[in-house]
């Protein structure tokens, strides 16, 4: 593990992950853990339905009592129990490198924490790095032991490129059909609008949770005077004179932008949490849990 890894995912971080794991178990006590009932009929313990026996069916699931009563071979059907696929879409566009600490570092920590809890619950965890397309993807992982592999994957993500979330999600969803929980960790700065991107995930019927990361420099920029503002993603620059009224207008626009995303998520019952980079990530994770949308 590199020095950066040590810094980002050090022993302290691991302790926090354990703590979050315990907390999450308490929060979801009494509920099914890692046993997701699906519409598929399979070999689970939970009775689901009957149907007529056809050749080739497993004799072990025949209901002999019903045969005695009805003189017909009736097969008992059980619900299929399978693991939950969780897709972590980590925005690694250039804008995520902004801030101190950078939004990408914060996203890595949040993603690692949620991955750990998912792995601990025997869910299948997928981590996808995207910007103007799918930059890198980690194969599905199960079991707590895989967390270090995830750490390495996250640390290998480098920021760069413009954000085209719709194109990225579209590419991924066309390749991956299985529904699951899609966690989008991003600063939500997409020139084409994030709504259309989330629509893609929504249309393939993923459960969606949006973690919106912002930096203080974005919320309340300390800018003054004659400036040439350079967009970190596309290097487009613009000369402006920063005035108090302009700053006020920017703050208003930022709030409006966040409210629009939140409103969209509310409208389609998507999970949504907004945070800033100096907010403790473990509290954010707990906040996500408390919303009750992350794990069902």
């Amino acid at each position: 593990m590199s020095t950066a890894n040590v810094t980002l995912f050090d022993d302290e971080f691991l302790k926090k992950l354990e703590y979050l794991n315990i907390i999450s178990k308490r929060l979801f006590a009494g509920q099914l853990r890692a046993e997701r009932r699906t519409r598929k009929r399979g070999t689970g313990l939970e009775f689901a339905d009957y149907r007529a026996y056809v050749a080739g069916d497993d004799f072990r699931h025949l209901d002999w009592k019903a045969y005695l009563r009805l003189n017909r071979l009736i097969l008992k059907l059980f619900e299929e129990e399978e693991d939950l696929p969780i897709y972590f879409f980590v925005d690694s566009s250039q804008s995520m490198s902004y801030g101190n600490p950078s939004k990408l570092d914060y996203a890595r920590r949040v993603c690692a924490a949620l991955c750990y809890i998912g792995l601990a619950n025997l869910d299948r965890v997928n981590v996808i790095s995207f910007a103007n397309g799918i930059k890198s993807e980690m194969p599905p992982q199960r079991g707590k032991g895989r967390i270090f592999k995830i750490f390495r994957f996250l640390m290998e993500i480098t920021p760069g490129g413009e954000t085209h979330a719709r194109a990225s999600f579209k590419t991924y969803c066309t390749e991956t059909r299985r529904r699951g929980l899609a966690v989008v960790i991003s600063d939500m700065f997409d020139g084409n609008g994030f709504e259309s991107a989330l629509d893609i995930l929504r249309h393939v019927r993923h459960d969606i949770f949006v973690i919106h990361i912002a930096s203080h420099e974005e919320i309340d920029p300390m800018l003054r005077g004659e400036l040439q503002l350079v967009d970190s993603e596309n290097n487009v620059s613009r000369e402006i004179t920063i005035t108090p009224s302009l700053l006020a207008a920017y703050r208003a626009e930022f709030n409006k932008y966040c409210e629009a995303i939140e409103s969209y998520c509310g409208k389609y019952q998507l999970g949504y949490a907004r945070t800033v980079t100096d907010f403790p990530f473990e509290e954010l994770v707990l906040k996500v849990f408390r919303q009750g949308r992350f794990l069902k």
């Binding site: 974005e218 350079v230 920017y250």
Partner: peptide, 11 residues
């Protein structure tokens, strides 16, 4: 003008 890098110029 002083050159300042911002995350995104959308807003």
């Amino acid at each position: 003008h002083r050159r300042v890098l911002i995350s995104s110029s959308i807003l």
